[in-house]
């Protein structure tokens, strides 16, 4: 059972992921863009166990939100959900300690396995 911070700019996908993750027994807080991610992370009474962030969002991307949080010393493991299937662009993700990439459409078995491993 993990406390997950989930972010995606699509309401539908947010609903989908939240439903599946909660069915799996996790606790889920959501954000719709990068700024909300930072705000929710700051406002958390207890820190999250894992971030599940969509790479591309308006206002602020998942990557930029992560960069901000990492700069504040927040080392929560993070999975990036991306429509890109070539493993993401290495260069601008350097130093962000991204634990893994989830490609769309989402393989939930793989997602659950990774969440479990990272929140042991």
């Amino acid at each position: 059972m993990a406390r997950i911070l989930l972010a995606d700019d699509s309401e539908t996908i947010l609903l989908l992921l939240r439903t599946r993750l909660e069915m799996e027994g996790h606790e889920v807080e959501t954000a719709a863009d990068g700024q909300e991610v930072v705000d929710v992370a700051h406002a958390a009474a207890t820190p999250h166990d894992i971030f599940l962030l969509d790479a591309m969002m308006p206002r602020k991307s998942g990557i930029d939100a992560l960069r901000e949080l990492r700069a504040e010393g927040i080392d929560t493991p993070c999975l990036i959900v991306s429509a890109h299937t070539d493993g993401g662009n290495g260069s601008d993700h350097e130093g962000l300690e991204i634990a893994g990439y989830i490609s769309k459409p989402i393989d939930f078995d793989q997602l659950f396995t990774q969440v479990a491993e990272l929140t042991r």
């Binding site: 539908t12 599946r20 429509a83 769309k104 459409p105 989402i106």
Partner: peptide, 9 residues
């Protein structure tokens, strides 16, 4: 990919 993600999901 995004709509497909929703439909499949």
């Amino acid at each position: 990919r995004s709509p497909l993600t929703s439909v499949q999901g």
